[in-house]
């Protein structure tokens, strides 16, 4: 499980990109259908996560991230002590 502070930072990024208030974003939301992100902004989302937490994320991983839960899983796997 990622810690509360990391969770808050990730949801802030999601909210900034989607313009959906962080408290309305659900873990099972889909980036495109539910949050309105297109393919370009979905890539930007993973890129912002990568910059925020100083991560090396491959393009293939970014493309495969299509839901909030997948984004959280990616963060959990890649952020040390998240």
């Amino acid at each position: 499980m990622i810690d509360a502070a990391t969770h808050t930072r990730i949801f802030k990024i999601l909210s900034d990109l989607s313009a959906v208030p962080a408290e309305q974003i659900k873990v099972d939301d889909r980036l495109r259908e539910d949050l309105g992100l297109d393919s370009v902004s979905s890539m930007e989302l993973v890129s912002m996560l990568s910059e925020e937490f100083n991560l090396d994320i491959e393009l293939e991983e970014a493309v495969a991230t299509t839901t909030v839960s997948a984004l959280l899983s990616l963060a959990e796997r890649r952020i040390p002590n998240a």
Binding site: M43, S47, M48
Partner: peptide
């Protein structure tokens, strides 16, 4: 500011 920079990061 808002852009995909994964290629630059890698």
């Amino acid at each position: 500011k808002r852009s995909n920079v994964l290629g630059l990061l890698s």
